[in-house]
Lab assay of single mutants.
Amino acid sequence: HTVDVQGVTYHFDNPEEARKFAEEMAKRLGLQVHVKDGRYKVE
């Protein structure tokens, strides 16, 4: 499970961890979480 944050890619084994990380980063950076091709993108 992959999370892209402003061009940096993070990998997680656990989909729940990936989702939480994406939401946390989006909140911290004031950005949105998009799901695209099964990847989380924070932009």
Rank of each mutant, 00 (worst) to 15 (best):
H1P: 09
H1G: 10
H1C: 15
H1N: 12
H1E: 05
T2Y: 15
T2G: 07
T2R: 09
T2D: 12
T2C: 07
V3G: 00
V3M: 01
V3F: 00
V3C: 06
D4I: 07
D4N: 06
D4S: 07
V5W: 03
V5G: 03
V5N: 02
V5T: 03
Q6W: 08
Q6N: 10
Q6V: 14
Q6L: 15
G7K: 05
G7F: 04
G7A: 04
V8D: 09
V8T: 12
V8W: 07
V8A: 09
V8R: 12
V8K: 13
V8P: 01
V8S: 08
T9V: 14
Y10H: 08
Y10M: 04
Y10S: 05
H11G: 06
H11W: 13
H11Q: 11
H11Y: 13
H11M: 13
F12W: 03
F12I: 02
F12C: 07
D13A: 10
D13R: 07
D13T: 12
D13G: 10
N14V: 09
N14D: 13
P15D: 15
P15I: 09
P15G: 14
P15H: 11
P15T: 12
P15Q: 14
P15E: 14
P15F: 05
E16D: 12
E16V: 11
E16F: 10
E16W: 11
E17H: 10
E17M: 12
E17T: 10
E17I: 09
E17F: 07
E17Q: 12
E17W: 06
E17D: 14
A18S: 05
A18I: 01
A18Y: 00
A18H: 00
A18W: 00
R19L: 13
R19S: 07
R19H: 07
R19E: 08
R19Y: 08
K20M: 13
K20F: 12
K20C: 15
K20L: 13
K20R: 13
F21D: 00
F21H: 03
F21T: 02
A22R: 00
A22F: 01
A22L: 01
A22E: 00
E23P: 00
E23T: 09
E23L: 11
E23R: 06
E24Q: 11
E24D: 12
E24A: 11
M25N: 06
M25A: 11
M25F: 06
M25W: 12
M25I: 12
M25T: 12
M25L: 07
A26D: 01
A26S: 05
A26Y: 01
K27G: 07
K27V: 09
K27C: 15
R28K: 13
R28P: 02
R28F: 08
R28C: 15
R28Y: 08
R28Q: 13
L29N: 03
L29C: 07
L29Q: 03
L29E: 03
L29G: 02
L29V: 02
G30T: 03
G30L: 03
G30W: 02
G30F: 04
G30Q: 05
G30E: 04
G30I: 02
L31H: 04
L31R: 03
L31E: 03
Q32T: 14
Q32C: 14
Q32Y: 08
Q32K: 13
Q32V: 15
V33F: 06
V33W: 06
V33I: 07
H34K: 11
H34C: 13
H34P: 01
H34L: 08
V35A: 06
V35C: 14
V35I: 12
V35H: 08
V35Y: 15
K36G: 06
K36P: 01
K36N: 07
K36I: 15
D37P: 02
D37Y: 02
D37G: 06
D37M: 03
D37C: 15
G38A: 03
G38R: 04
G38N: 07
G38F: 03
R39I: 15
R39F: 07
R39P: 01
R39V: 14
R39K: 14
R39L: 07
Y40F: 14
Y40K: 04
Y40I: 15
Y40D: 04
Y40A: 05
Y40W: 12
Y40R: 05
K41F: 15
K41L: 15
V42N: 02
V42M: 02
V42I: 06
V42G: 03
V42C: 04
V42T: 03
V42P: 04
V42D: 03
V42L: 08
E43D: 14
E43A: 09
E43H: 06
E43Q: 07
E43P: 03
E43R: 05
E43Y: 09
E43V: 09
E43K: 04
E43S: 09
